[in-house]
Structure formats: structure tokens, C-alpha cells
């Protein structure tokens, strides 16, 4: 279980997360919606330990990310996919994927490579294992980014707007993969502006507004008139997103 309890985070005088509570159970896909600046990325960055909390607690399978000794264990259990891919530019697709399994999990190189190739094949990049990031399209890079996260066999996959740097065609090739992962029962925390897609794959949708988790509802309920839509801010947000 991934548990966010009463988390507060401020940058200087600006409060970005103001008492956020969120629980993600294994097998769930939870999408985080919210307007720009509402704190979605910050929440993800608190979960993977890139930002320190000011208050509250985040545990990943009971490992507290605020405790240096437990952070390493927590990080082994979560994998992050980034908006801008953040691939290692000097390494091939395969090397990007196998570095952490070999160095962190101490997997034998041959095994890590075989698994890496299998992952690449799953995302349709079986023939690009030896390509460098600069030689790949945006969509291909992001698929490598997803493989890199999956190679660590994480319990929880954290995705922060992983398609917003891609054009529509590439977006759909990445979303197809995420849909498949969701179907296979991968646990995901999914920050996105792709409302329709979130609706298709999520078990739950949460809505963040100015650092406060306004709504946390099962997907059906979130889009129901007497559910999420009853919240004026959510209704406003959804109608604005649909117009864009």
C-alpha cells in the first residue's frame, strides 16, 4: 500500500501541498487531475523522495520516505516515468534500462539484458535496443522511459504527465502501453491532463486544487452529476479541459 498522510509541502512562503491524504492499494490505477500549479508534480516528487516533506508522512509498503534508511527500500518499490523522459543520453536504450537492475538490484548482466530486451519488445521497440535516445522519436523515448521504470519491477508506477511533451500520434502509442499495463494489474499513480484516457483506465480519480485534495472518488462517481461534478471546481475544470 502506498500511503500519503496529511502531507504538507511549502517552497518558501508558498504552500504547495496543504494536508494531502491519499491511499493507493496494489492493483489500483489512481489518476490525479488538477489545474496547472495545483501541486500534482510536487506530490509525485514527495512520493519518490525528490522533495522533502514539511509535515505528514508518506509510506510505500510501510517504508517511510522521510527516513533516509527506508527511502532506498521505498524507492525500490516505486518507479517513476518523467514528463521529459530524462533518459541517460550517453547510453543505449538497453543500457538505460539495465543500469539500475544491475547496479541496484545486483542482477547478473545477461539476465538484466534479456529482461530489458523482452520489455523493449513488449513496447514495440525490440529492434531499437542499441539506439541512443537522440536517435529515437519522443514517443519511442518515453516507451524506453517506461521500460526503464518497469525493469526495476516496481510495485507502484508513478507517472507525471508522461505524454504532455508528445504530439498526438506519439501520445496514443504511449497511452496504448499504459492501458495494457493497467489491464495487467500494474499499480499506477497517474498525473495527467488526458481526461478521457484517465476515465478509461482509472479505478479512482482524485482532484487536486491549490494543494488540497478536493475529491477522491471511484471513476464512475467522479464523472457523475451527484459525485465529482457536484463540486463546482471539478465541473469547471472538466468543462474547460473538454473545450481545449
Amino acid at each position: 500500500m502506498l500511503k500519503v498522510e496529511n502531507v504538507k509541502k511549502a517552497f518558501g512562503p508558498v504552500t504547495v501541498l496543504d494536508g494531502v491524504n491519499l491511499t493507493v492499494n496494489p492493483g489500483e490505477v489512481v489518476s490525479i487531475l488538477g489545474s496547472s500549479g495545483s501541486g500534482k508534480s510536487t506530490l509525485i516528487r514527495c512520493i519518490n523522495g525528490l522533495e522533502k516533506l514539511n509535515a505528514g508522512k508518506i509510506t510505500v509498503d510501510d517504508f517511510d520516505v522521510s527516513k533516509p534508511k527506508e527511502l532506498a527500500e521505498a524507492r525500490k518499490r516505486s518507479g517513476t516515468v518523467f514528463q521529459l523522459f530524462n533518459l541517460y543520453p550517453h547510453m543505449t536504450a538497453l543500457q538505460n534500462i539495465t543500469l539500475a537492475p544491475i547496479e541496484v538490484l545486483k542482477r547478473p548482466k545477461a539476465e538484466a539484458e534479456a529482461e530489458g530486451r523482452a520489455l523493449l519488445t513488449q513496447v514495440g521497440l525490440g529492434d531499437r535496443a542499441d539506439a541512443y535516445p537522440a536517435q529515437l522519436s519522443g514517443g519511442q523515448r518515453q516507451r524506453v522511459g517506461i521500460c526503464r521504470a518497469l525493469a526495476m519491477k516496481p510495485r507502484y508506477l508513478l507517472l507525471d504527465e508522461v505524454t504532455s511533451a508528445l504530439d498526438p500520434e506519439m501520445t496514443s502509442e504511449v497511452l496504448d502501453i499504459l492501458a495494457k499495463l493497467a489491464k495487467d494489474g500494474t499499480t499506477m499513480v497517474f498525473v495527467t491532463h488526458e481526461i478521457e484516457f484517465a476515465r478509461q483506465i482509472s479505478n479512482r480519480i482524485v482532484f487536486l486544487e491549490k494543494g488540497v485534495l478536493l475529491v477522491d472518488l471511484p471513476t464512475e462517481k467522479f464523472f457523475a452529476a451527484d459525485g465529482g461534478l457536484a463540486q463546482p471546481r471539478v465541473a469547471q475544470f472538466l468543462s474547460k479541459m473538454r473545450k481545449d
Binding site: 525528490l50 539500475a100 547496479e103 541496484v104 526503464r148 521504470a149 526495476m152
Partner: peptide, 21 residues
Amino acid sequence: NGILEAAEVSGLSKRVTFTRI
């Protein structure tokens, strides 16, 4: 910086991050 963050969240040690990345 995003590259270094990717290395950090994947659990790579400071030493490995420095020498390999």
C-alpha cells in the same frame, strides 16, 4: 537535472551516479 533525478529515484548510489552518468 532531470537526468540526475532519474538516477536518484532509481536508487543508484552517489558513486555509481557519478562514475556512470
